[in-house]
Every structure is written in structure tokens, then in C-alpha cells.
Simulated assay, not measured.
Amino acid sequence: MLRTVPTTLILTVFITLLFALAISSITIGPMRISWMDSLAALTGETHSNAPHIGMIIHQIRLPRTLLCMLVGAILAICGAVMQGLFRNPLAEPGIIGVSAGASLGAAIAIVIFSQLDFNAPSLLSLFTLPLFAFLGGTVTTLLVYRLGTGRMGTSVTVMLLAGVAISAISGAGIGYLNFIASDQMLRDLSLWSMGSLAGANYSHIGLCAAVLSALMIIFLRKAMALNALLLGESEAKHLGIAIQSLKRQLILLTALGVGVTVSVAGSIGFIGLVVPHLGRMLCGPDHRRLIPISAILGALLMTAADIFARVAVAPAELPVGIVTALIGAPFFIYLLFKQRGHMR
């Protein structure tokens, strides 16, 4: 059985695969660069007759690869925590409307504040976009949770329906912003809304690395509480878990994670749905193991999706959000059929 495999062995294998995939990501692009030249450029030993290789690696491909891994890890652990919090495998930031709310917040920042901050675009990118995306994701998450929670507990059906409604409202808002935006803003919004890592830079990497580190520390501290919550809210209360406080904290933290990823990479769905299921197949439902394994798997899946996006229609490039949707949507349909079978 896969569940008997030690966590350290699983992490070692996946970290090795991630390293190999990251080097592959660095070598792939309009200009082919060999593994040896890529490794040499990373260590500062670029060949003397090709000094441009170092510039391509350090300024374009390495930032994109690092950001790709960080975004995938954040989305994956947020999905794992959300599924544990709501005790349902269908819970995911994109499906219940959290990503849509964060996207609307970020779109508002792009259209309204870009002209105000035109002298400081880095300030807009580093602070304004994450703030508005976080606010949009937080409001959406709290609204979905409020609508889906009643005296009998949390109804996932109501949450999914609320997510559909909120996604529609957010889509209408983004459509209006597209209507009033300038030509350049319209192009930026269109590419951003489909998910793209082309604008990766070290400011984005630093922001995502800080958020991922904070989320990993806090989520791992809350892992035992999440494990208790899997038994049911009443059982968790008997074990001394402050349910409402735990929910508020985790909802705000997942909204923060989703908001940051939306602000730097656009709307990328289904990573938080698929990865936690793969993690549970490998290590079981214990969040102490599931969260770190989900982080590595999320980075792996996101990097693989980004590589595919770059080679599928080369020399053009697919938005990575389209690739993740092609992976995740069939998986979501499969989960719906499984859920229907349990309801009979």
C-alpha cells in the first residue's frame, strides 16, 4: 500500500523530481539551452562565447520557474486546508468562488490604480494587487461560508451554488472593467485572467516565498486541529478545539494565499482540487503529512503544466490557467460521479 511509504521517502523522491523538472523548465523556451549550459549559468560559469545565456536564465527563466513552484505550492496547501476545513473533497478555492472574488479585486486594482500609480508600477504590483486580491478573496470566502453554514452545520451543496453565483457576479464585474479599460489594460486583463507566469520577477518571488513560509508554519501548527475536525464539529469541540476561531483563522489565511497567487499569476484553477487528492492517496488524511506533500506535489504539477503551456503551441504560449483547467475539470467531473455514487 502507498500509505505505508514513509513521509521522508516520499518527500525525497518528489523533491528530486521537482529539481529535475525545474532544470527542464529552465532549458525550455524559444531558445533551446542544454542542461549543462543551464546548470553552468545557475552556478555563474556561463560559456565565454554565450554570455547572453546567463541573462536569459537569471532574468527570465529562473524567476518564472521559481514563481511557478511557489504558486503551485500555495494553491495546493490552501486547497488541502479548505477540504479539511469543510470536510468535503469538492471544496477548492476556484470552485467555491474564492478565486473569482480575488480576481475581481485584482482587476479593480489593475484598472483603477494603474493610472494613479503609473510612476511606481512596482509598488502597484507588489502591494496594491495583493491587497485588493486578498480583500476580494476574503469577502467571497466569508460570504460563501456564511451562506453555506446553518444550524445543522455546513452544506457543501449550498457552498457550491453560492460559489457559482459569486463567480457569475465577479465575472460580470470583470466584464464591465474590460469594457471601460484602455486597449493596453484590456490586453493585460485578458492575459492575466487566463493565468500567466510571463511577468515573473524577484519581487513576486519574495512575496510568494514569504507567504508560503508563513502559511506552512501556521497550517502545520493547526494540523492536529484539522485532523480532529475530520471527525465532525461536535467531536472536535469535545476534544477542546475552538471551532469558530479555527474556521475564521483558516478562512482568512487561505484567502490571503489565494489572493497573493491571483495577484502575481492571475486566475489558476484546480491545483487546489487535484493535488490534495493525490496527497491523500500517498499518505492518508493526516494533515501533518498531507500539507508538506501537497506543497511539493503542487509545485510539481504547476511546473509541469507551465512546461506544457510553453511547448504545446510553440513558438506561441498557452496561458497556464487553460492547461490546469484541462487537467482539473475532468478530475472534478470524476469526483462528482463518485459523490453521486455515495449519495445513493
Rank of each mutant, 00 (worst) to 15 (best):
G199L: 05
S190L: 12
M216R: 10
L231P: 08
A225F: 02
W192L: 03
L220A: 12
L220V: 11
S182D: 11
A198T: 14
N201H: 10
L189K: 01
W192I: 01
F219K: 04
Q184V: 12
S213D: 02
L207Y: 01
A198F: 07
A223H: 03
L220C: 14
L229A: 04
A223C: 08
L215M: 14
Q184H: 12
A214V: 11
W192P: 02
A198L: 11
N227A: 01
H238Y: 12
A210I: 12
G232E: 02
D183S: 13
Q184C: 04
L197P: 03
A198G: 15
K237D: 05
I218E: 09
A236Y: 00
R187D: 12
S213V: 12
G206D: 04
M185S: 14
R221L: 15
M224E: 08
W192M: 02
M216D: 06
A236L: 06
L186N: 02
M216P: 11
G232S: 05
S190T: 15
A209P: 07
A200H: 07
L207G: 05
I180W: 05
L197M: 07
S196K: 04
R187K: 15
R221D: 09
I180R: 08
G195Y: 00
I180C: 10
A214C: 12
I218F: 13
L212K: 05
C208N: 13
Y202D: 09
S203I: 10
L207P: 03
L191D: 13
E233V: 03
L207C: 04
L220T: 13
L186W: 00
G199P: 08
L231H: 09
S196V: 03
A214P: 01
K237R: 15
G232I: 02
G195A: 01
R221G: 14
A225Q: 11
N227E: 00
S203W: 11
A181T: 10
A200F: 05
E233I: 04
I218R: 09
H238F: 11
N201V: 02
I217K: 07
L229C: 07
G232H: 06
H204K: 14
A198H: 11
I217W: 11
S234I: 07
D188C: 01
A228F: 00
H238C: 14
A198S: 15
A198E: 13
M194L: 13
L191M: 15
H204S: 14
Q184W: 09
F219P: 06
L215Q: 11
W192V: 01
E235Y: 03
R221V: 08
A214F: 13
N201C: 08
A228V: 00
E235G: 00
L212C: 04
L189T: 01
N201M: 03
E233Y: 02
N227W: 00
M185G: 11
G199D: 08
A225L: 07
D183Y: 09
G232C: 05
I217D: 07
S203L: 10
F219T: 06
S213T: 14
C208I: 05
A214E: 00
A198Q: 15
E233K: 06
